[in-house]
Design a protein around this nucleic acid. Structure first.
Lengths: 339, 339
DNA sequence: TTGTAAGCGTTATCAA
DNA sequence: TTGATAACGCTTACAA
């Protein structure tokens, strides 16, 4: 292993001089020695020992990406959304010259360990972390970037999207296409700010237009029996004609169940999704959905991180990205002889 | 920040004793002091400084996950396959008490840095790394686990699948269903061992049965104009009736293009995929595909890693997992009045 | 412009 | 069963 000392000896200087050169403090070293040292370091294949650096400087160029662990069955990254986010985040972080550690965390102890043990310079929380935010903040003076958080703690750095607006857009579009008998399908609303806001935006827009969604049409769906659910919704005397799914993945489950039941999309049933992940445009029919720019979200998270690392006194920002409706072919117009 | 010394002072012992307790060398310390120290450490919220540990012990409990970077546009993790693999790998690694660093690497320099700078205990290569394997091995004495490698270097540790067999299975199944006019669609074969073996298995099985695939039906597809391609294949005088797609994602593109062209699957065209990613069962119609157990692959990668870390003289293993055909509904029987 | 000395928090080694 | 001491490779702070 090549160390500063090795290079120093070969160059006939002190290791301090080499250190300065390796860190680009070239203004403190004569141009001639700088060149010579650079050349020797290159020849010897010097790679700085990050651990030693961290220890001596009490700071690292390391970022922790924290994913909340669901427990057995289904890792967080299987979700197309989080993997896309992590992918872009990794690239951005790396572009800034930082390294990234990936952690699955399930409780406060895990989080604390990930942050402290490697003296990371900052962290990005991916997934739901609404609970002990305050405590985490209190125990760590490094920048902590949250995503899609609806925590009651007001002073946090967060990047999220306007979920409420997304719900409104979906409602508006379905209404515009003549649908009045609507349903909302997604994971449990309770305690999930993201889903709750989508639902609220959806319902309140409808209410304004005099349309209401009965409680039994707001379904907490755990991916088990979609066919049964669809039967209940669509084969009743007053059948649902439009569904707002809280994710594109959920929409694809609806597609599959509808196919098996002989329900045609959009002729018999209209579906609108959320996210616009890669596959959505390839679904059959192509999915109309509320698009959020995941890559951009990751980029912003990285920018917030860097800003707060460079200037720890930056104000707490909660950036809310707007969403847009992407019109494709999964929503049909009701009552136009289409059927 | 709580250090060993802090605890030592409070407990009235040397930091060496605390170190021993924290590392579970409880047989070297009296039961009484062990208990006392544990309690104090707990109260003070001690978290070991990993950097100091690495520096002093010249070894880390860190694993590097290396993803080959394609450059701008599309991060490696957007691919459902690699994100699923990484997800499971992370979980396994963490279960073993190791931490994981994620690196996008584009050349030898990047790889070298990722491996050396943090003194990682081992590395897993995700994606194509057939090129400078020898050099990487020579420069690093830590366990290196490759995945899906068809490198000419024989002595490497690798987990892969039987891509050839996958090709055979696909061919056999299509033949069994009466298809004789076949096509192969995937990324460039040249220099991609995985794709090449799938193709070879496919073609040689067919050849044995007296069926040949014309060169213009072996298509290197870069995701651009699938509709044009399908037109060429299916609207000719001797139309293709069965396509072997080298990935499920590719199959979904075929689905989408076929839909737009009014080609029905499986009535007009049969499609068989590869991987069996999460969405495949929800495609319409559900995709018949060659299944590989990605999670299991990740688990094996982790096991190989741990084995080689514990015993650096373990023999080089190349584990080849078999694949299986998952029959769903995207392949129809030809010439049975189905049409 | 360059060098010296101390120390970051831990573990290895040897001594008590 | 415990402790003293010297590293590990680097940076900070100060001196020359």
């Amino acid at each position: 292993m090549v160390t500063l000392k090795d290079i120093a000896e070969k160059a006939g200087v002190s290791s301090m001089t080499v250190s300065r050169v390796m860190n680009g403090n070239t203004k403190d070293v004569s141009a001639k020695t700088t060149e010579r040292i650079k050349k020797i370091a290159d020849e010897m294949g010097y790679i700085p020992n990050s651990s030693a650096r961290v220890l001596a400087s009490r700071s690292s160029r390391l970022i922790a990406a924290l994913l909340s662990d669901y427990g057995e069955g289904g890792t967080p990254l299987e979700d197309s959304y989080s993997s896309c986010f992590l992918g872009e985040l990794t690239r951005q972080i790396q572009k800034e010259g930082y390294d990234l550690m990936l952690h699955y965390v399930k409780d406060y102890t895990d989080i604390n360990y990930s942050l402290k043990s490697w003296k990371v310079a900052g962290a990005v929380f991916i997934g739901m972390f609404d609970e002990n935010i305050r405590k985490i903040q209190k125990d760590n003076s490094i920048p902590l970037i949250f995503t899609d958080s609806y925590s009651t703690v007001r002073s946090i750095i967060n990047v999220g999207i306007d979920d409420y607006q997304g719900g409104e857009l979906a409602a508006g579009y379905l209404l515009e296409k003549g649908h009045k008998n609507l349903a909302f399908i997604g994971p449990a609303v309770l305690g999930n700010g993201v889903i709750m806001h989508r639902l609220q935006g959806f319902c309140s827009f409808l209410r304004e237009k005099g349309v209401s969604v009965p409680l039994e049409h707001i379904v907490d769906f755990g991916s088990d029996d979609m066919a049964g659910l669809l039967k209940r919704l669509c084969f009743s005397e007053n059948p649902v004609t439009g569904i707002f799914a809280t994710s594109d993945v959920c929409a694809s489950w609806i597609y599959a169940a509808a196919y098996r039941l002989g329900i045609r999309i959009p002729e018999d049933l209209s579906v609108i999704g959320f996210d616009d992940i890669g596959m959505s445009r390839y679904m059959i029919p192509p999915l109309t959905t509320i698009r959020q720019d995941i890559r951009r979200k990751a980029k912003i998270a990285s920018e917030l991180l860097m800003k707060n690392i460079q200037n720890p006194d930056s104000p707490m920002e909660n950036i809310v990205m707007s969403v847009e409706l992407v019109e494709r072919e999964s929503v049909g117009r009701l009552g136009t002889g289409y059927f």
